[in-house]
Amino acid sequence: MTGQAAVRRQAPGKLFVAGEYAVMEPGHPSILVAVDRHVTVTVRGCAGADVVVDSDLSPERARLRRHGGGLVPYGADGGQVDGLGHVVSAIEVVDALLAGRGLPVSPVHVSVTSRLHRDGTKFGLGSSGAVTVATVTAVCAYHGVELSPDERYRLAMLATVRRDTGSSGGDLAASVWGGWIAYQAPDRTAVRDLAQRHGVEEAMRAPWPGLAVRGLPPPRELALEVGWTGQPAVTSALAGRLDARRWRGTTSQRSFVARSDERVRAAIRALEEGDDDELLRQVRGARRVLAALDDEVGLGIFTTRLTALCDAAEAVGGAAKPSGAGGGDCGIALLDATARQDVTRMREKWAAAGVLPMPIRIQPTNGGLE
C-alpha cells in the first residue's frame, strides 16, 4: 500500500449520566451521552518501522515492529509506549483481524490528536475509549476494511480487554453510536477468552453475554451542563479500590447494584416518555445512590468540588452528580433549558468553588440503533 492516501477518522468522548460502577457488572444498565469533543487518528504509510505512533497524549514517538502477534519497540531507539497502550492494543487487534481474513498488513504511521485534555490533563471524557475506537476504525479503513458500528464497538472492546477486563466499554459504545444511549456491558472475561480460543473474527460474530445497547431520545426541555473540577481522576484506580476492599459479591454490592438499576431504568423510562421532571428526580436519586456507596466503602467519589457542583445545581432546581468514577474529573447538571438565570447562578457558584463550566454539546447520534 505504498503511496496510499492518508486516512483520518474521529471518535467523540463521553459522559456518564447514570449507572457508573453498577455497569461494571455484566448486564446492568447505564445511560451515557457522546460529546462534541473528539480524538482524531490519522493513518498513513511509513518506512523504517512496521508501526510508528505519535500522540499529543504522550511525550515521545514510538517506533514498533510486529513480533509474535503483537508490537514491540523497534530496537534501542524505539521510544516509549507510555500513554500509548490503548493505541498499540487497537493496532494489534486490527492486525489479528486482517491476518484472520488473509489480508496483507502494511507499515503504518499513526498520529493521534485529542480535544479531551488540556496541556496533558484529561477532562474525564473517555479519552481511552475514544482513541481506541478512532484507531481501530482508521487502521481498518487504511487497509480497505470498513466496519459497521457494531463491528467498531466489538473490535474496540476486543482491543480493550487485551489490556484490562475491568473497563465496562460504555465509553466505546458512546463513541461509536453517539447521542444518548442505554448501555449494558458484556462479560468482558468471557469476551477475552473467546478471542483467545477462537480468534478475533469469530469473537466479533459470537453472542456476547450481557451486552445491550439502544438509542434514547434526549430530554425535551432540559439543558445538560458540564463542570470540570480541574482534578484528574483515574477510573481504574477508583474501581480497583472496590476489589481491594473485597466488596464484589457481597450483600452490600448486590444492594448497591439493585438500587442503581432501579434509578437507571426509571431514568430510561423518563427519557422515552419525555418526562423531564421524572428524569430530574431519578438523577438526584442516582447521586444519592453513589453518595451512599462512597460513604460505605470510602472510595473518594465525591470531592469537595464535585459536591459543590451538585449542590449548586440542586439549589436552582436542577439535578446533578459526578459523571463516571468521580474522585475528580467532571460532573453533570440537568436544568430547565429556558431558565438562563438559573444556569448563570449555578455557574457563578461553580466558579466560586473552583469548578470550570465546559462548553460541551451532545454529539448527534450516528444511527444504527433502535
Rank of each mutant, 00 (worst) to 15 (best):
M1T: 03
T2C: 06
Q4C: 04
V7M: 05
R9I: 02
A11W: 04
L15A: 01
V17E: 01
V17D: 10
V23E: 07
P26I: 13
P26L: 06
P29T: 05
P29A: 13
S30C: 00
L32V: 07
H38E: 05
H38A: 10
T40K: 02
V41I: 13
V41W: 03
T42K: 03
A47P: 07
V53I: 13
V53F: 11
S55F: 04
L57P: 08
E60C: 08
R61F: 14
A62S: 11
H67P: 13
L71P: 02
V72S: 06
V72K: 15
A76E: 08
G79S: 15
G85E: 04
V87S: 02
V87R: 10
A90D: 04
E92Q: 04
V94D: 01
D95I: 06
D95N: 09
A96K: 00
L97Q: 01
A99S: 14
R101E: 10
L103M: 10
V110K: 03
S111D: 00
T113F: 06
S114E: 01
K122C: 08
L125Y: 12
S128C: 06
G129L: 05
G129R: 07
A130M: 05
A130R: 07
V131Q: 09
T132F: 09
A134D: 05
T135A: 12
V136F: 02
V136R: 02
G144I: 05
L147T: 03
D150Q: 12
V161S: 00
V161C: 02
R162D: 04
A173D: 09
T189N: 14
A190N: 07
R192T: 03
V200L: 01
V200H: 06
V200F: 03
E201S: 08
A203I: 02
P209Y: 10
A212M: 03
R214C: 06
L216P: 06
R220P: 04
E221Y: 09
E221L: 05
L222E: 00
E225L: 13
E225Y: 14
Q231S: 08
A244R: 03
R248K: 12
G249F: 11
F256E: 12
R263E: 12
R263N: 13
V264D: 07
R265T: 08
A267T: 11
A270V: 08
L271Q: 00
E273L: 07
D277A: 11
R284N: 12
R287L: 14
A291Y: 07
A291I: 12
A292G: 13
D294Y: 12
E296N: 09
E296S: 15
I301V: 15
T304P: 11
L306Q: 12
G318K: 15
K321V: 15
A325G: 15
A325E: 11
G326L: 00
I332H: 10
Q341C: 07
W350A: 10
M358D: 03
R361S: 06
I362G: 09
Q363H: 03
T365H: 08
T365M: 00
